[in-house]
């Protein structure tokens, strides 16, 4: 009975989330987010797409605890989110790998230094080794970030976030800085690392932000389409494509149609962004 309730309870609950900025000098109000309601289920891969300025990064930062909403409530497993924590791992757009630490040191950072860390050095090394295998960075353990390619840095950033075994993984346009080919490869790698072959409820919950609609359709279970001015949810589209997602699925008609539908939702805003400052 209990596992059923747990499984059906949303992992993340956003109710009436709003974010307003007041410019100190002019007193001008800018509404970045306007009353966003969102449930994220356990083990779900959720993508958020939308034009620039729609507030998707703001939502992510709020879930991560790096920003506070000006109105509304935000809970994880029913508990309010107060600040950043090891239960919500983040992969940043610019990777944010510590340049003075090696790949290994970056990955073990969370398990080693987080509040309430209890792992012994052996356990830690074992975990790091597993992760390095998982993200296929063998051989690069003792390299520094500046010695790595973009794709390798991204893998290291994954591994670092995963090392803490967070319940929720937040990813802010992680592939934006990569070339198109690497991006495609890493999308497939991400799904593999996420464990899309495994059973649903044991997987981590992922919230993934991207500009790329085809990326979102390839990766997600559901896609949140947002609009801007003010930032709000336009529509939530489920992605009924089978898992595991094979690369060929990109050529599938259903895939293409979904991409087109979503594009139509945001096209005019994307256009407007290119002609207005």
């Amino acid at each position: 009975m209990e596992t059923l309730t747990r499984a059906s309870q949303p992992k993340l609950k956003l109710r009436g989330i709003g974010k307003e900025f007041v410019l100190p000098r002019t007193g001008e109000h800018t509404v970045a987010l306007d009353s966003v309601d969102l449930d994220v289920a356990r083990g779900e891969f959720l993508c958020i797409v939308g034009p620039s300025g729609c507030g998707k990064t703001t939502i992510l930062n709020m879930i991560a605890g790096l920003a506070k909403p000006t109105s509304g409530t935000l809970t994880i497993d029913g508990k309010p989110i107060e600040g950043p924590g090891a239960d919500r791992g983040v992969v940043f757009q610019d990777y944010a790998l510590f340049p003075w630490k090696t790949v290994r040191e970056n990955i073990e950072f969370g398990p080693r230094y987080r509040i309430g860390a209890t792992m012994s050095r052996q356990e830690r090394n074992e975990r790091v080794r597993q992760l390095i295998d998982l993200v296929a960075l063998n051989g690069a353990e003792n390299k520094y970030p500046y010695e790595l390619s973009g794709g390798m840095r991204q893998r290291c950033a994954f591994a670092r976030a995963l090392a803490n075994e967070p319940d929720v993984l937040l990813m802010d346009e992680p592939f934006a800085a990569l070339d198109a080919q690497t991006r495609v490869i890493l999308q497939e790698e991400l799904l593999r690392i996420w464990g899309e072959d495994d059973a649903g409820a044991d997987r981590r919950t992922v919230v993934f932000i991207t500009h790329g609609i085809d990326e979102a359709v390839f990766l997600a279970d559901r896609i949140v389409v947002m609009s801007s001015h003010p930032g709000r949810i336009n529509e939530i589209k489920p992605v009924a494509l089978p898992r595991p997602r094979k690369p060929e699925i990109r050529a599938d008609t259903r895939f293409q149609e979904l991409v087109e539908e979503i594009w139509q939702l945001i096209r005019h805003e994307a256009y407007a962004a290119t002609i207005k400052a």
């Binding site: 090891a86 919500r88 791992g89 983040v90 987080r114 309430g116 670092r160």
Partner: peptide, 8 residues
């Protein structure tokens, strides 16, 4: 931010 989200 990265460090904080790793729970340190």
């Amino acid at each position: 931010n990265a460090a904080r989200t790793l729970g340190v």
